[in-house]
Amino acid sequence: MTSAPVIVSLPIADRATSYRFYRDGLGLDAVGELADDGIPEPLQFVVNDGLRLMLIPVGGFGWVIGRHEVAPKGQSECLLNLGVASSTDADRVVGRARAAGAEIITEPAEQPWGYAGVFADPDGHLWMVSADPKS
Rank of each mutant, 00 (worst) to 15 (best):
G38R: 02
A100D: 07
T2A: 14
L79D: 05
L34W: 02
C78G: 11
I65N: 07
I56N: 11
G114F: 03
V58S: 06
P42N: 03
P133I: 12
P5Q: 11
A100L: 05
A99I: 01
K73N: 06
P112A: 12
G59K: 10
A102P: 03
A131F: 08
A97M: 07
P42G: 03
G95L: 11
I105N: 05
I7D: 01
A16D: 11
W63K: 14
E77G: 15
T17N: 06
R52V: 07
P57C: 00
P72W: 14
F21E: 10
V31D: 14
P42A: 02
V70S: 00
E77H: 08
S135T: 11
D29Y: 03
R20I: 06
E77N: 13
Y22T: 00
M1C: 07
A90K: 11
A30C: 10
R98E: 13
L10R: 08
T2G: 13
P42S: 03
A120I: 06
S76V: 12
V31I: 15
R67D: 10
G114Y: 01
T88A: 15
G95P: 12
D36Y: 05
G25R: 02
E77W: 03
G62H: 00
D29I: 02
S86V: 12
V129F: 05
R15S: 13
Y115S: 04
V70R: 00
G101F: 03
D132H: 09
Q111M: 13
D132T: 00
M128L: 08
A102D: 04
G83V: 06
R20P: 04
L55N: 13
W113R: 06
I104C: 05
S18P: 03
M54T: 08
H125G: 11
L34Y: 01
G83Y: 08
A16C: 04
R98N: 07
R15V: 12
D91K: 04
G25F: 04
A35T: 09
G25K: 04
F45S: 01
E77L: 09
R96F: 07
G38W: 04
P122S: 11
V118D: 01
D29P: 02
D49R: 15
R23L: 11
M54V: 02
E41V: 02
W127M: 13
G50N: 08
Q111I: 02
D49V: 15
I65W: 04
S87R: 12
G66R: 03
R92P: 01
F61D: 03
S9Q: 10
S76I: 08
L126H: 12
V94T: 15
H68D: 11
V64L: 07
H125D: 09
M128K: 06
A97V: 05
D14A: 11
S87D: 09
D123H: 05
Y115F: 12
A109M: 13
G38S: 02
S135G: 15
G117D: 12
I12E: 08
V94P: 14
